[in-house]
Nucleic acid binder design. Structure first.
Lengths: 176, 176
DNA sequence: CCAATATAGCTTGCCATCGATATATATCGA
DNA sequence: TCGATATATATCGATGGCAAGCTATATTGG
């Protein structure tokens, strides 16, 4: 998730670590903050893998900046991760939202549509929590108000997203 | 998250690991599967901390079962975690949903309401991603359809949950 | 009778993340 | 001038999660 965000932000423009830190905080930090001790090792990891380049810049404001650039291999890796996301990126909301934030980088509408279709398949497939064997559960089937809420919220959420997915898929198909 | 789920399920009744594994899978496995290599060490951890007891039962179907029981200390710890959840449990959906699934164990409506109010505060507080400095963003402010979607879905989701939170808070307050 | 599957539990090695801590520089207000 | 804050990067130890593999037994279907 973090690596995807790093690659995704750097696809737009080179950034130094501190700026990257702020952008990531603005994107997902509200929900799940990223510690410094997570970000910098992640940058090193991507750098060692040849996905990032680094240029030293004398500090304009404070300590010297390390400007990070996405290498061609990095761009390829980003597109690969967007095109063929692992299952977790389709089921876990945090990861899925991160992916969605950068899906525009995948220029081909057909490829974008393929990813959205996989998410749609996941969302329209029944969640085990909401089934009692073969019988679909309703909010009234839960005796406590909190599980009722869980159900109500999950249903509303998934309905809103399914609607958006269908609309957007129609749009992408009419484009391509 | 996993530890909360273990303690939460065992509050209802003693269970052996395999059954626990299935219940957790039914609750959150759809979105985020739990590996065996994660569950069993977590059980040991809680056991070592004195939160769980263990009784050997000759296998009724296969290998002998280790029936796990919530100790008084374990019950205390569960209630503490429900009553005073860490920030991450209020912001991260996965964790929040897990917490919600067991919030009924906190018997006092006033305490339950306090937790819901903290979530409401988080949800009604503006997310940095959706603000440009002081200006709130609208879906039309995003140029690509995927970030538009992100915004649309997040808004719909949060609206549905806020409505439920307000309704349920009213209910809890009228009860207590 | 044999293979597959379900039940049942556990370990090991690897890797990612977190919290704490360290180091420096520039700016701004008291 | 001193402390606070913002900018900027990095390391380290502990923890926790994951994939893979291991060991059993009982049932079911071919």
């Amino acid at each position: 998730m973090l690596e995807l965000a790093i690659l995704g932000f750097l696809h737009d423009e080179p950034l130094h670590g501190y700026e990257l830190r702020k952008r990531i905080a603005a994107l997902t930090g509200h929900v799940r903050p990223i510690a410094d001790g997570t970000l910098y090792p992640a940058i090193k990891r991507l750098e060692r893998a040849g996905l990032l380049g680094r240029d030293l810049q004398p500090g304009t404001l404070a300590a010297p900046r390390h400007v990070l650039t996405l290498s061609p291999a990095g761009r390829g890796e980003l597109l690969r991760r967007l095109r063929e996301p692992e299952e977790l990126f389709l089921t876990d909301e945090n990861r899925w939202f991160t992916l969605l934030a950068f899906l525009r980088h995948l220029r081909d509408p057909a490829e974008q549509a393929t990813v959205l279709r996989r998410r749609l398949t996941f969302l329209t497939q029944p969640a085990s929590f909401f089934w009692d064997g073969d019988r679909p559960l309703r909010a009234a089937d839960f005796d406590d108000p909190f599980r009722q809420g869980l159900f109500t919220i999950a249903t509303a959420t998934s309905r809103a997203e399914i609607r958006w997915l269908r609309d957007t898929l129609a749009l992408l198909e009419s484009d391509g």
